[in-house]
Design a protein around this nucleic acid. Sequence first.
DNA 1: GAATGATTTGACTATTCCGTGACAGCAGGA
DNA 2: TCCTGCTGTCACGGAATAGTCAAATCATTC
Lengths: 238, 238
Amino acid sequence: MSENIESILVVDDEERIRRLLRMYLEKEGYRIDEAEDGETALQKAIDQDYDLILLDLMLPGIDGLEVCARLRQFKATPVIMLTAKGEESNRVQGFEAGTDDYVVKPFSPREVIYRVKAILRRSSATAYLSKGANTSNNIVFPHLLIESDAHRVTAGGHEIALTPKEYELLHYLAISPDKVFSREELLKDVWNYEFFGDLRTVDTHVKRLREKLNKVSPDAAAMITTVWGVGYKLEVPK
Amino acid sequence: MSENIESILVVDDEERIRRLLRMYLEKEGYRIDEAEDGETALQKAIDQDYDLILLDLMLPGIDGLEVCARLRQFKATPVIMLTAKGEESNRVQGFEAGTDDYVVKPFSPREVIYRVKAILRRSSATAYLSKGANTSNNIVFPHLLIESDAHRVTAGGHEIALTPKEYELLHYLAISPDKVFSREELLKDVWNYEFFGDLRTVDTHVKRLREKLNKVSPDAAAMITTVWGVGYKLEVPK
DNA sequence: GAATGATTTGACTATTCCGTGACAGCAGGA
DNA sequence: TCCTGCTGTCACGGAATAGTCAAATCATTC
């Protein structure tokens, strides 16, 4: 495969949000371009060939939906829409306008990165391979199965009901198995960007997660490992 | 790659800290510039093109967060924030302002250098290579494997559980194999800069390290060599 | 092989960190 | 409105780790 850096256009009128997204996405290795209003965004999106566009719904001038709709007359560049909390009812509209996915503000970096990767994986898969080759979002371990699409977790053969945060935490650890994350990192990545909370919050969620896992599969629970003085990781048993 | 010397701006109002950082970073081959307040720092950071900025959070005048945020209107220079222990709650905020990483005071030189290298490696990697190029942090020896991400040490095929200090010590020795470090050097580099303890502390940690290694792999334990009258080194077997 | 000085070791104490439970605030649904 | 889960906070008790020190051991030199 031609290993080009994938480029993403970030469109938001708030500088803070653009910076945040740029930082996280650059860390993932993407090339980032920015626009702060609809006109510029549309122009750039038509001129350049981005692999993906992150598009705020509420924009001065032409709004996100409009940008997306007009862009669609020229290109099929994938679009992830960013919507503020109250605007959720617009979801369906978003999809009609040709949006591929949407993320509600205030999002967690984890959420955005995950969606971005999912979309890019999908589109590069349809571009280079024949039928939807392995584009499954499932994460499979010996005693643990995470089905992202269904938002379902199965441990030792038993499905378990996780709360949103528990799921997000587990999912985030599971994406990078064996990698240790400090509590700070987890707070930064898994919680939304407006949250400035106590480090111990992480401990509490880990505790609850372990409890639930342990009830149906001690093996699965044992995968969540404490690294003393450092943080937590999801350890893959050999 | 054009092999230029990378330059770093060190910002802290305490002269002692600036001197400390300068000394250690120059030893690593970086060019160091200093600033002792926010205004100067911002000015320098905008005028010059540093590869990295080490920025204290608490500064007279404009504080670190502010400096970082304003700088971001011009440049994307990577920033590592230095925060005192009590300021921990501000950590996450720092990240939002555009910080790439942070280090808590009192840090150990080893820690700072390690982060600096990681960030610079990353930014030069995204600039010249495609994403996720081989930036693995693993250190491999015949009987010993150190995986930084997983914070895992494997000796003779067996994983061993090390305490933070044991890990740090081993990791530090392993970064410069065959180089002898005096106890003084180890105390200065591996321990934080406020620690003025007994030289024998090093011996004790070496002892514990050897014990643990020896239990699963005498070959690995034998790598930690005493150089009589000088110090310790991690010797690579031929 | 004795003297000397450096290192290893074990035991003890101090310190730091983590797991847990209890509780309060919130949001969403009945 | 009350009820019900979900979250986040906090403090305490226990566990793990770190540091000190002196006695025992070892390497080196004469």
